Computed example of a mutant assay.
Amino acid sequence: MVSVNVTELRQHLPDYLKQVQDGEEVAITLHGKTIARIVPDQQENKREIALKRLGALSGSVIVGDIMAALDEEWTGDADNL
Rank of each mutant, 00 (worst) to 15 (best):
M1K: 08
V2M: 04
V2Y: 02
V2Q: 07
S3Q: 15
V6H: 02
E8C: 01
E8H: 06
E8Q: 14
L9V: 09
R10D: 11
Q11C: 02
Q11T: 13
Q11R: 15
L13R: 11
L13G: 03
P14D: 14
P14M: 13
D15W: 01
Y16G: 15
Y16C: 14
L17A: 13
L17T: 07
K18E: 13
K18G: 07
Q19G: 06
V20T: 04
Q21M: 11
Q21I: 04
G23K: 12
E24D: 10
E24V: 02
E25V: 08
V26E: 09
V26L: 09
A27V: 05
A27Y: 07
I28N: 03
I28W: 02
L30F: 06
L30A: 09
H31L: 09
H31I: 02
G32T: 05
G32N: 07
K33C: 00
K33F: 03
R37D: 01
V39I: 12
V39M: 09
D41K: 13
Q42T: 14
Q42Y: 00
Q43V: 13
E44M: 10
K46G: 06
K46E: 15
R47P: 00
R47G: 01
E48F: 08
I49C: 00
I49E: 09
L51P: 00
L51M: 09
R53K: 15
L54P: 00
L54A: 12
G55Y: 15
G55V: 08
A56Q: 13
A56T: 05
A56D: 14
L57Q: 12
L57S: 10
S58D: 15
S58H: 15
G59E: 09
S60R: 13
V61E: 05
V61N: 02
V61T: 07
I62W: 03
V63T: 14
G64D: 03
G64C: 05
G64H: 06
G64N: 06
D65W: 00
I66W: 07
I66P: 08
I66S: 10
M67I: 03
A68I: 00
A68T: 02
A69T: 02
A69H: 07
A69K: 10
L70M: 04
L70G: 14
L70T: 08
D71P: 05
E72K: 11
E73F: 01
E73S: 08
W74M: 07
D77N: 08
A78Q: 08
N80L: 09
N80W: 05
L81A: 13
L81V: 08
